[in-house]
Structures are given as structure tokens and as C-alpha cells.
Write a protein that binds this DNA or RNA. Structure first.
Lengths: 136, 136
DNA sequence: GCATTACTCTAGTAAATCGATAGGGTAAAA
DNA sequence: TTTTACCCTATCGATTTACTAGAGTAATGC
């Protein structure tokens, strides 16, 4: 299941991408428009900022804005930052790999085999989908 | 993330599919061989039984066995029984559909659009993968 | 400067889910 | 009639999720 965190994050990013000008947008504006708790959204945008997806400006006329063009922001980045691993099991994860304790041989494991296929496919979708694709 | 329940369920099914003869296999045998808590496995096999995937036989020489040929047991069935919805959000789920409360228009929703693609792909993999495919 | 605005950060918490564990009950086979 | 093994219910600690509260700090405009 996709967490609300990720869901809200994507919605906020799309909202920013849809702005005509690249001016800072206040959290409260996004929060109202997308029906997201303001405080919760605050923490989400903060992580996106800390990881180079968003920039922010303080004070009057401040807010958040995209640091890159929507077409250059890939869904893999967003998913990994907000949701964590893309794989359904750690033993097939690229960025969050962990060995299964109960499994003697990964290569002989049916779950591994199946989930590897799923990960490959899902990853390809996220790689080929940019923020621009979602904003049309 | 895939739950242990599903993971163990798949492993147990593969174990059963790999048996030469179609004789009942005791829970304790599967549990030891696959490093799964016996009691936990018990409840998993029970759900698979209640939903027509497995049969069971009581008493001495009893145990669980597949009700169908491995090639006729699709991963969609197994995943839905043990893991639940295949989709990452309820609003793109076929069997567990639910409308998002915060979303005014599903067709205009970026998350919906993205997750629909993911679900289609994942579903296709599960549909095209049978227990037989995983047992080789 | 100084008030306003808006971002930043730290805690905490209610609710749900997960992954078991415990223990007794019941049916069937030898 | 004893053994074996399936069947069912209840409980429980740990973790995660989705927020909420509240205080602090940095810019901006007048």
C-alpha cells in the first residue's frame, strides 16, 4: 500500500509543476487546494527540500518551488524519498538491499524470483515517468 | 512491502508443488524445511484451504496437499488471498476498490494515473506466473 | 527596527497492522 | 482408544502510520 505521505507528496509536486510561473507557493495554498493537513504536508515538503527536489524561500512571499524542470524529476526519486524501497522484499531491493534470514539460497527462492520480476517492471515505469508526464 | 504471511504462503505452496507424489505433507515438515513458525504457518495454510487452493487430511498420515495442478494455480489468486489488494491505492484496485475521500476527480489525479500503470503491469506478471513457474 | 509571515524542528500519540504465541478442542486414522 | 494432526480463538508486544501540538527562527516589507 502506498502511504499517504507519498500520495500527498506527489500531489504537491504536481501542483507545483502546474504553476505557470516558478514562484514560491505557500504550504497553506497547496494544503487547501489538495485537501492535505498543513502540518503533515509541511514535513513532507521538508524532506523533498532536504533531498534537493524542492527549494524554499522564507518570509513574506515565501514558499516552496521546484528546483528542476518537471521533465527532469523522475518518479523513482520521489518514490524512494517518500515511500522508501520500490521492491516488495528487501532481498530484491537495489537501494535498500537486505538478505533474508530465513532463506538459505536467494537464487533458489521462489519469492525472490517473482518479486524480482515485479520490481523490474515497476522500476521501469517509475523511471519512464517524470513529473511532467503526470502534470498534463 | 510483502508481508511474511504471503512470503511464507508462497514458500509453502512451492514446497508442496515440488513433492513427487501428491500425498499430504504435515505442517511440521514444511515449517522445519522452510524455517517458518509452525503455528503461524498453520493459520496461513488454513486460509489457503478455506479458499480452495489446498486440501487437508486429518489423523495419522495426514497433512496438506494441492487441490489443483501447480500450472493451474495463478499468483493472482495467492496474492489476493494472502496479501490482499494488488494495487498500491484502493482507487485503482479491481477487487478492493474504494474511492479516495480527498480526491475530487479520479481521472484528473496524478497518483491514480501512475498507480494504474503500476497495477496493470504487476497484475500481468502475477497472471502469467503460476506455481509451476516458480517451482522449477 | 519591528511586526508579520512563513519556514524549521522536536515531541508525542492514537489507531492500526504485523507477526507471532498460547492453549485448548476436535476429527480421523491405526 | 490412543495417537496424530488439523482447527479455532484469543491475546500481545513491536512497529508503523498519520497526524497534532507547540515552540523556535529566519526573512521580508514597511
Amino acid at each position: 500500500m502506498l502511504s499517504n505521505k507519498t500520495k500527498y507528496g506527489i500531489k504537491a509536486l504536481v501542483f507545483l509543476a502546474k504553476q505557470d510561473q516558478r514562484v514560491p507557493v505557500q504550504i497553506s495554498v497547496i494544503s487547501k487546494s489538495e485537501n492535505i493537513s498543513q502540518k503533515f504536508l509541511e514535513s513532507i515538503l521538508l524532506t523533498l527540500k532536504k533531498n534537493g527536489v524542492l527549494g524554499s524561500k522564507k518570509g513574506k512571499g515565501g514558499g516552496y518551488y521546484l528546483l528542476k524542470e518537471p521533465k527532469d524529476i523522475s518518479m523513482t526519486t520521489v518514490m524512494r524519498l517518500l515511500e522508501g524501497p520500490i521492491a516488495m522484499v528487501p532481498c530484491v531491493s537495489l537501494n535498500f538491499y537486505e538478505k533474508c534470514e530465513d532463506c538459505p539460497d536467494e537464487n533458489a527462492c521462489a519469492v525472490n524470483k517473482l518479486m524480482l520480476k515485479v520490481r523490474d517492471n515497476t522500476l521501469q515505469i517509475f523511471r519512464n515517468t517524470s513529473l511532467a508526464d503526470l502534470s498534463n
